[in-house]
Design a protein around this nucleic acid. Structure first.
Lengths: 201, 201
DNA sequence: CCAAATTCTTATCTTTTGTTAACGTTTTGA
DNA sequence: TCAAAACGTTAACAAAAGATAAGAATTTGG
């Protein structure tokens, strides 16, 4: 994938939230950077401030914490989803988690400084605010849904729901990462899968 | 508490995110409404679109789902926090949860239409976008932290953290709601409390 | 190509949680 | 004021999850 394709993909994604004129896009584009992240390389890591807010144009990233020396995977971002250690990016504090490429990945990115300039830009500032408001609202809703799933559903129910919605997660991601994502251990997920197989068989 | 106090409290809170001139405030204020919600009355309920984004000026609200005929409490908003069935408000779809006053509560509120007008307002539109972007980002970070707590911590660790941060939650909220909030049953929380008492005793 | 690492399952045992029910206390509301 | 409802704890049992380890299948990377 070349830079042009990646940038066009970014444009298509943000225009879902706010349509842009050609002139606006040309300005917006000037604040963007392409980041190529080889598999297992980090976009963010604990102790460092995450300097990029990115859209995954190709590939995927995985979010994880280290607890008692073990990796615990909390989330993934696939093509056309935004990726960042968001709290770190916004607050300029050290990240507490890794954001790592699961595959060779191409990211269309705002550096922190460029994004602030884009907000301050006379031509596109207002639209940038709106766009990023809508994007933040979109992800806030996603987070609220996920919190609700932890509060109101059992791990088995969460896994069944994941099966229904047919998440890409299930095809592209090792099961033990999915287990963490569901808030359980890999062994426990394996047992849940066996339980479900017996019922449907 | 009178309306003036409530409005001033709202102003102080939003100015944490974006400072306002007096003129801007006067315009913004014209889009606001005061809602008085008696204890046990709902700001939102399943099957209805939530029409208000509100700041709690006084009192508190509780968010809950009904599952198998039982209430499961997912969250609370106290003084100076925003409250809404946010997904419903933003997407204009029916809410799936209740938002209910825990005490007699005063809310400073945007109706959906008023908020859209405020965004479109020539004088304050740009600042409104920025303000609501920053607010959405703030709550997004809170949600991400909470999700991380479900993925990386045990219920006991989550409760201990709640004790440390000394959440208002613990003083003002019945324990069985707190249990739901932590993702466990009231009986289980009672046992966790006993375990902790024995250790610290 | 092949050794090493990763992944998934399974088994065993321990710990924790859920479920239900009972009990005393406190709070509520008519 | 007083009966009813709500609240928190505890007990007993069942169900589920965590921890650890072993083994087979797959993937990986040099």
């Amino acid at each position: 994938m070349d830079s042009l394709t990646a940038l066009n993909q970014f444009r298509a994604q943000v225009e879902i939230f706010v349509p842009l004129t050609e002139a606006e896009w040309q300005v917006l584009k000037s604040y963007l950077e392409i980041i190529v992240l080889k598999k297992k390389k980090n976009l963010a890591e604990p102790g460092k401030v995450c300097n990029y807010l990115t859209l995954v144009a190709k590939g995927a990233v995985r979010y994880f914490h280290i607890k008692d020396g073990e990796e615990i995977t909390g989330y993934f971002s696939f093509e056309n989803e935004f990726a960042s250690s968001y709290k770190s990016f916004l607050t300029r504090q050290s990240a507490i988690n890794y954001v790592q490429a699961l595959e060779d990945t191409i990211l269309v990115s705002f550096s922190y400084n460029n994004l602030q300039q884009a907000y301050a830009d006379e031509l596109i500032g207002h639209k940038m605010e709106r766009m990023c408001r809508l994007i933040a609202e979109h992800y806030l809703i996603c987070c609220e849904d996920r919190i609700a799933s932890f509060v109101t559903q059992t791990p088995e129910e969460r896994y069944n729901k994941l099966l229904e919605t047919g998440g890409e997660v299930l095809q592209r991601i090792p099961q033990h990462y999915v287990a963490n994502f569901l808030g359980i251990t890999p062994v426990s997920l394996s047992r849940i899968r066996r339980r479900i197989m017996k019922i449907s068989a």
